[in-house]
Design a protein around this nucleic acid. Sequence first.
DNA 1: GACAGTACTGACAAATTTGTCAGCTACAAT
DNA 2: ATTGTAGCTGACAAATTTGTCAGTACTGTC
Lengths: 120, 120
Amino acid sequence: MAVIRDKEAECPIDAALSVIGGRWKGTILWRLVDGPMRTGELRRSIPRITERMLIRHLKELVADGVLDRHDAQEVPPHVSYSISRYGRTLTPVLRELCSWGEAHMKRGPAEPGGCAPPPI
Amino acid sequence: MAVIRDKEAECPIDAALSVIGGRWKGTILWRLVDGPMRTGELRRSIPRITERMLIRHLKELVADGVLDRHDAQEVPPHVSYSISRYGRTLTPVLRELCSWGEAHMKRGPAEPGGCAPPPI
DNA sequence: GACAGTACTGACAAATTTGTCAGCTACAAT
DNA sequence: ATTGTAGCTGACAAATTTGTCAGTACTGTC
């Protein structure tokens, strides 16, 4: 995709996609809808993501105000992420994306290995 | 972004984003919600898109079943695109993306609390 | 004939995104 | 002194996406 940067958005749809349109951002938000998770927990729950990409996307989502980052200021580090108050305004968007996506996956030769709701 | 290819989708949200997540796909769909448009009409209505990208995205959207392509079989060519029946199932998704995107655009540069520069 | 309009394609380069891999911090346990 | 931990960063390469530019086919106009 196709990352659309904020300033380039031609229409509201693009503006929204510029926030949630990264390679792993949908998955990350999907994991977090059920509650906060620690960095390593997220990483383990998304098998094919690399730590680099996870952290990069988390930073972007935090910068966009969609996620909150909680640092327990401990050693070793203890950081967790959760959907922010502003991020929760995305709920209807995510719900529609999710239900359409479910139907779309069932259409034609679907890919096995499904998309059960967030494990762990 | 971040194009997510169908087979790689980890969750329904990704599956949906794999269809509408291209650099210009949001804009294209946005232009077409009001009715069919010819290729050149679309191109002129999206100032910064190149013909190459427009056609490439149109082909992908047609391949995903979201758009219909009508070729009048005339010379010079007369081709128009419209949202297909299946594509219309995207309407609620687009509506939510659009209204969230509108609100997001009005929300100046995100400066969420807690983003103070590192102490030290 | 030269040129414009329309939808589209292909080769290639530039830009952007992602992956790989090493290393950092600060403390605790061995 | 060495190793381990959790979260994170930077350099670099690979992969992917996008832009640039030329060219196709056919017809109508000057």
